[in-house]
Amino acid sequence: MITIENLTKKFGKVTAVEGLTFQVKEGEVFGFLGPNGAGKTTTIRMLCCLISKTSGEATIGDYHIGKADDSLQIRRMIGLIPDNVGLYDDLTASENLDFYGKLYECPEGPRRENIERFLKMLDLWERKDTRAGSFSKGMKQKLALARALVHEPKILFMDEPTANLDPESAKTVRDFILEVKKQGRTIFLNTHNLDEAQRVCDRIGIIKKKLLTIGTPEQLRESLSKPKTEIRLAQVTETMLSTLRKLIPNKIEVSDNKLLIDVTDPDKENPAIIAAIASTGGQVREVTQLAPTLEDVYLQIVKETK
């Protein structure tokens, strides 16, 4: 659906995005992660034909960004939720949507239906005749979601849609994203929120000017940090440690009466470790398998490129 090859954007001397190459498949939720100033917004703006590329190629469907004739076609296919919602405060919720529906050439009937459907889905139907300016942040974000969908785009670009939202509103937005995915739309989601990325994205790309890594959340977690087993004991003894060191050459960290052991295959190694501890008279109180989080992966990757 989206193919990006060697895409680069320079603002004067500043290179915002360099040599991006990746693809987003149809129907996929793609998460674009990166620190502030990493080039996430710049990438979305290039893909939405809002700013020109400096070099490289990108296609949305069969259309090329940067080609004058194609950009109108691309804009018809996509919906955008920018980082600033940009609603018209003096217009009501339904007027905001109606304006965009008309701009996207939705015929009157389907336009009305869509406005009603999306406002109802997002719990805004009761407030349809209220000025958008009086809405809370969460409501505005939801209205911006409805606005981006009113013309039923194939691809939805979202720039940090849950930033600054309270947990409940953020959840509503996330649930809605999953709902939109069910309808078969492709979603390109910029976010800082790792937990969110993990929950809603099929694949994640981490960017810091260049694309650092890309994969499913599981692949990313597995690719980097190894799993660890944490064992809490009544007491840690020297004999216990030397027995364990003979059994497994992996790194063992000791703190108070806890052991933190790097493992490669927990299912096989854990029972052996516990048996070894028991053989030295150790009393196991608690065993916890620590899986690396996406946060670990993210921090590690972003740090490595400093």
């Binding site: 703006r45 939405c48 034909c49 809002l50 109108l72 804009r75 018809r76 996509i78 955008l80 939720i81 920018p82 600033n84 919602v85 940009g86 609603l87 018209y88 405060d89 965009y100 701009l103 996207y104 050439e105 911006a144 606005r147 981006a148």
Partner: peptide
């Protein structure tokens, strides 16, 4: 001021 240019310019209008 309303920062409404971005969605507007993303719409199919020249």
């Amino acid at each position: 001021i309303e920062k409404s240019l971005e969605p507007l310019l993303a719409a199919p209008i020249t």
